[in-house]
Design a binder for these strands. Structure first.
Lengths: 184, 184
DNA sequence: CACAAATGTCACAAATATGAGACATTTCGC
DNA sequence: GCGAAATGTCTCATATTTGTGACATTTGTG
């Protein structure tokens, strides 16, 4: 029964990802919990948001790290990490969103920002190999591909929400769109 | 000086696109205007939001319609409408976002929904031609490509906001990612 | 300059969101 | 079934957001 805290966090990620300033009652509803209970686990909005970020960073870091270690081939690594990104779903996109907000000033001094950077260090490093060895040609930049990656995850999430496509089909489609889209 | 109303709408689209429940003061700030002035032009939040949607639908509809009429070749049409989508920028993505929200129930009876549908009628019709003639193969679905289209627009906007890429370069990159990503 | 329109400043009431106390009810392990 | 922990209900104080009136200031125009 102690997974209430976790389910609130999951709900918050879902809600805040759509509506950053949504009232906490929406989060509580999504978690099928009272606002009162939510406040028993989280002192205030800021604390909830912080826990969300921590959860997100952890989940993404673990998934990415695991995927990275499945193979030594850069091309296969990219694919493995891509699927890991899909599996992280809205956690992945929310993390990315928080760091591309209009008023967000990215600075390495910020603890959360540096953790964010670290999360994608492996990803970007691997990507750089593919770029320099010419497997990915064109005028592709790391930033573009990073954004593009996140965007394809959004497409995947949307398709899953609608239920129009099976998970396996959607995963294949996503990888097709991503890999071809960056010129592999 | 009467473009104050318009600049508030533009500001609102920018802010609401990032944070749907953002306080109106943020919109006023973005428009470099007092909250008091904002309320002189818009009775309340709902009226502002409605005007935003109207503006968005109009802008997207005009841009798409123009692009459609530049050529009769479906393949070229797709490209022209793609660039039109880029030019609509956040208007395009905000419109799409509003209709993919978790709690949004899409129903043709709804006036705004039907207008939204109409906006992309041409786009989807043209796409269907490309699908049935086999120019786009794979297990691609219209919905997937539609979502994918919107996502690439987001990537484009992000790259422009950062200023890392010139507009022309970004447009080319975007078209590359999109066209290859759907298997053209 | 003078005048009118637009905007800003300040003040304020109403609505909504937030956070927490007190106590009832439910849930779970034993 | 008992007791403890978790959760819900109800209530309330406070903070924030919202919308508007009254009046000062700025801006554009003749």
């Amino acid at each position: 029964m102690k997974d209430t805290e976790q389910s609130i966090i999951e709900a918050a990620i879902l809600i805040f990802n759509e509506d950053l300033s949504a009232p906490l009652e929406k989060v509580a509803d999504q978690a099928q919990v009272t606002r009162r209970t939510l406040h028993r686990y989280f002192k205030d909005r800021k604390e909830l948001m912080d826990k969300c970020q921590k959860e997100i960073r952890k989940a993404c870091a673990v998934a990415m790290s695991n995927a990275y270690n499945t193979t030594e081939n850069p091309r296969e690594r990219l694919e493995a990490m891509f699927y890991a990104g899909l599996d992280c779903g809205s956690k992945n996109t929310f993390l990315h969103k928080l760091h591309t907000l209009h008023d967000h000033k990215h600075q390495a001094a910020n603890e959360e920002c540096s953790e964010y950077d670290h999360t994608f260090e492996l990803w970007k490093g691997n990507l750089q190999v593919l770029l320099t060895t010419g497997i990915i040609n064109q005028g592709m930049t790391v930033d573009w591909i990073h954004n593009f990656f996140q965007s394809v995850v959004v497409v995947f999430i949307n398709s899953q929400q609608k239920g129009a496509l099976g998970r396996t089909d959607a995963r294949q489609l996503a990888w097709f769109s991503f890999s071809k889209g960056i010129g592999i």
